[in-house]
């Protein structure tokens, strides 16, 4: 197992994070470091706490940090509201974005955008539509990408970008995202429970979350994904490729 020789600045750093929702502890001590410009994948079975981690990083109030710290470029975000974190440079592409009636995507983009609309993505036809109203699965993801990239963030969390999409769509959206991340030298945490996206993503690191803990971190996404595909997540606990 070879490690990255080059020293990278850490963009996101999470230390011993415990998060409760509805008084139930969902994350039970998560540590995670993502270097500048790096793409990390987070895998795990349903209900393991992946979205909870995403919401906790974004600062969604329901997801209460009971212990631990979240840093972006060494700045402690743990007490900031979501809008403060967005301004610091964190963006989240939601797994299930809500319908917001009476607000058009174009108007929101005008309001929040730190950049013009990038023409690398063909989303113009969505600008006049109310946010997520009547959009197909693919259109919702496209709308999410347009929003998060318009913010020019330093770290983007993609929560199940691939769910419910055919493989061609996954490929298009992933390659667009990679291109944008490269251009901005931004970092990404890509959450998925279906490893197909990894082929297009080629992440620098892969993490496996089970039961609110990251139980495996590796540079070798291929071996990890092959193991999960063959033996299921349960085998991860005893896995030999673990190298964190």
């Amino acid at each position: 197992m070879q490690n990255h020789a080059k020293k990278v600045n850490t963009t996101l750093s999470i230390k011993d994070l415990h998060v409760s929702v509805d008084d139930k502890e969902v994350l039970r001590g998560v540590d995670l470091d993502i270097g500048k410009g790096e793409v990390h994948a987070l895998l795990g079975p349903n209900a393991s706490g992946k979205s909870t981690l995403a919401y906790a990083i974004m600062g969604i109030p329901e997801y209460k940090v009971t212990k631990g710290r979240i840093y972006l470029n060494k700045k402690d975000l743990t007490k900031l509201p979501p809008e403060g974190r967005a301004k610091t440079g964190i963006a989240l592409a939601f797994q299930n974005p809500p319908v917001v009636k009476n607000v058009k995507l174009g108007d929101l983009l005008n309001r929040i955008s730190n950049t013009g609309l990038d023409d690398g993505i063909s989303g113009e036809h969505l600008l006049k539509r109310e946010l997520n109203k009547g959009l197909s699965g693919g259109e919702k993801k496209l709308s999410e990408l347009m929003q998060v990239f318009s913010l020019k963030p330093k770290l983007i969390i993609f929560d199940e970008l691939d769910s419910g999409l055919d493989i061609e769509k996954v490929k298009t959206l992933t390659s667009y995202s990679k291109q944008m991340l490269n251009k901005e030298n931004a970092s990404a945490l890509v959450i998925t429970h279906n490893g197909e996206i990894l082929r297009f993503l080629k992440p620098e690191k892969i993490h496996v979350m089970i039961n609110g803990k990251i139980i495996c971190t590796s540079d070798d996404w291929k071996t990890v994904w092959r193991t999960i595909k063959r033996y299921g997540y349960e085998k991860c606990k005893k896995c030999r490729v673990r190298s964190s």
Binding site: M58, G59, I60, P61, E62, P81, P82, E83, R85, A86, K87, A91, L92, F94, P97, P98, V100, N102, V103, D107, L108, R111, I112, Q147, L151
Partner: peptide
Amino acid sequence: NYLRSRGLTEKEVINLI
């Protein structure tokens, strides 16, 4: 929360909607 995560304050979200 969705719109706050895009950088808008609660007041700004209310105005927008």
